[in-house]
Design a binder for these strands. Structure first.
Lengths: 240, 240
DNA sequence: TGAGAAGTTTGTGCCACCGCAAACTTCGTC
DNA sequence: GACGAAGTTTGCGGTGGCACAAACTTCTCA
């Protein structure tokens, strides 16, 4: 709802030159692509698009984090995925859809590029490596979802939360003194929506882990101080 | 393990002419494609490929059903998906992978075509509509998985099993007297592996539903006699 | 036709986790 | 710097559905 912007001053080619779907392109081509893009700077917690809406644009996250979620008929939220910067999202066309299959919300401040969906086929046809790289990240996301299904089907809450934390620090971790911190604000509630449990249970688990020196957390911030022991946690056994 | 066959007598073009990824092609092109294919006839419960194996071939299911599953480190099985005839599967290349992300097993007797993965890029480049249709089914499967995640995160066992049944009769249902039957042999165990519960719980549920006239079942066979009331079941409330 | 395998049903006890509730802490803002 | 909103912690009771166990039924194949 809040802060939008049109085509900002002028985007530098280096913005995209190292980003997988565009990394094989010449400077000239990246220029073309950037000239077609709109830029927006969004605050935390802003919806980029809603599930079911006609897929009119596709997006590239330049900075920040995006949370992909779905909302059930009864109003419960389920977080499907977090997307780090440098990835495309909202690429409904890539999977033959004309509406977005889920809602995307910023998990932090974010900068996003976007293009009208009608140029999608051009991108695929014209830019070498674009399609390939796109489908590679799609495959990764698919694999991740698959893993989550297996986890939810076979693991206990404790292990699921541990897994979720590890995945977060792997994908979006930032090294700080004393451990690895999740690079965006995240609440117990969020974590519970990622692991199919309640914020109460997550809170209890984090408190326990904090006492054991596995993690340390403040409001909306979580730092994993002992990833190794957290990995052990994923495979069942309660440590001493 | 059991029954294999090489290129059988001679496949008829009509086999593929109505199957989405090939439906836009000319007879000549379908001939080409068929001439490159191997055919196999498989019994029930035979593995087509295993998770993690190098993705050397991709497949088209001509008849029967395929079950896509994963096995955890502790040996538990989780069924991710059932694939009905007329769909491609094992298309690792489409998502930028060079190993299969899951195991595929026949859920019934089945007839499958297959091609070496190296012709994949040719297929995409040469055959109009092939890529598009492929990604459409990919999108559907992604959506299904997404739905399962949401279900497992928000619903009770009873609702999840009801949902699983409904999905099965939607996708693979066969009309019989007195209801719609799932078109391939399926055990309580299978159903429990699809819904993250135990075979005991599934058995109890089915027994209860049978008493209420919602379903009727025999060994390895399930018929939904009152789909409408089963739909109600999905949304919580216990009926009279 | 009979023995074993595979699949199903049913009972009982128990515990991990949720639901509810209430107090507490941290942050933003006027 | 005080108020309210947002986020967190903690206690307690209840219960859904799992684990374990055992009998039963239906198929298969010799």
């Amino acid at each position: 709802m809040s802060d939008t912007a049109k085509t900002l001053p002028r985007l530098d080619e280096s913005l995209l030159s190292h980003v997988p779907p565009f990394s094989k392109l010449e400077k000239r081509q990246i220029r073309e692509i950037l000239d077609m893009a709109s830029v927006r700077r969004l605050g935390e917690g802003v919806a980029v698009f809603e599930e079911g809406a006609p897929a009119e644009r596709f997006y590239m996250l330049l900075d920040g984090y995006i949370r992909v979620m779905r909302i059930t008929a009864t109003g419960e939220q389920v977080i499907a995925l977090h997307i780090p910067s440098g990835q495309l999202f909202g690429i409904a066309k890539a999977i033959g859809r004309d509406t977005y299959p889920a809602t995307s919300v910023t998990a932090s401040e974010a900068i996003i590029l976007s293009w009208p969906m009608r140029v999608w086929d051009d991108f695929v046809a014209r830019y070498d490596g674009f399609a390939t790289e796109t489908y590679k990240t799609l495959g990764q996301r698919l694999g991740e979802m698959n893993n989550r299904i297996v986890e939810m089907a076979t693991q206990q809450v404790e292990q699921r939360v541990a897994n979720a934390l590890l995945r977060l620090i792997n994908q979006t971790g930032r090294k700080v003194e004393g451990g690895i911190e999740i690079d965006f604000p995240i609440t117990r509630q969020d974590l519970s929506e990622m692991t199919a449990t309640t914020l109460h249970t997550v809170s209890r688990l984090l408190s326990a882990w904090e006492k054991q020196g596995l993690v340390s957390s403040r409001r909306k911030r979580i730092t994993v101080t002992d990833p190794h022991r957290l990995v052990l946690m994923c495979r069942g056994g309660v440590p001493t």
